[in-house]
């Protein structure tokens, strides 16, 4: 019991902006550096080493950014929902700030996934955009991110913005499966008009390694950017707090 309370208080100590601010300041350069190294390695493998695809030629190489971006777009939304739960359960202000700091990155990856998908679709399917189930769900995910950010920026009171944003993130995450399946069924109803994705051909090992490296790079990049953004949010919100003035940052 005593250890439990101890670890709890330790957890909450890092949930306090005053403790987290310098920690984040120390950590983010490391994450950024690791992201850069991984991205370089991933790109080198993806663009130079991985073999040309038998059916798609070199245009498939876009997956080295497309697939990690698509993964991140969904994963970041899940992480936001997780922080939303923390916001409600523990009333920690930092979790709400993390949620807010992650949203633009999530939206960016969603946009990249859509954009690179379109770039790949043109040579492969002959169209920039097809109303494929996955593409359409991804588009709606982008709308969810935009709605979250629009609401956050429209509310001046930070407590209300945090709580309202957390509620929107939770409602969104509950609805994502419903949206995904309905879009899938919609797709089968309109079979004639759409192009179904062919099964992914068995992937060369180099391709897989390159993709995983890029995914890790995106991951590290997201953490670094979120930490930088959360530091900015802390400065903005705690500008009157004594600890920040002592740190000489405000």
């Amino acid at each position: 019991m005593a250890t439990l309370t101890a670890s709890r208080s330790r957890f909450f100590r890092y949930a306090s902006p005053a403790t987290f601010y310098p920690l984040a300041g120390r950590l983010w350069p490391w994450f950024a550096a690791v992201a850069a190294v991984l991205a370089l390695a991933g790109l080198a493998i993806g663009l130079l080493i991985a073999p040309t695809d038998a059916t798609q030629g070199d245009s498939y190489r876009i997956i080295f950014i497309h697939v990690p971006a698509a993964w991140m777009s969904m994963f970041i939304y899940l992480v936001m929902a997780f922080y939303a739960v923390l916001t409600f359960v523990f009333q920690t202000r930092l979790s709400a700030m993390m949620m807010r700091a992650l949203a633009p990155t999530g939206a960016m990856f969603t946009f990249i996934a859509l954009w690179t998908g379109a770039l790949w679709g043109k040579p492969t399917w002959g169209a920039w955009w097809v109303w494929d189930a996955r593409l359409t769900s991804e588009l709606i995910l982008l709308f969810l991110y935009l709605g979250f950010m629009a609401l956050q920026s429209a509310i001046d009171d930070t407590r209300r913005a945090d709580r309202a944003g957390a509620l929107v993130a939770l409602v969104g995450v509950v609805n994502v499966p419903i949206i995904y399946f309905s879009v899938k069924w919609w797709n089968t109803l309109h079979q004639g008009a759409s192009v179904s994705l062919t099964r992914a051909p068995s992937m060369a090992r180099e391709m897989l390694i390159g993709m995983l490296l890029m995914a890790l790079a995106c991951w590290m990049y997201s953490i670094a950017v979120a930490l930088v953004r959360v530091r900015a949010l802390i400065v903005e919100r705690e500008r009157d707090a004594a600890w920040l003035r002592e740190a000489g940052e405000a």
Binding site: D157, T158, R159
Partner: peptide
């Protein structure tokens, strides 16, 4: 009432 504290925004 005991020790009530209030905060409006910041």
């Amino acid at each position: 009432a005991t020790g009530l504290a209030c905060r409006r925004g910041e």
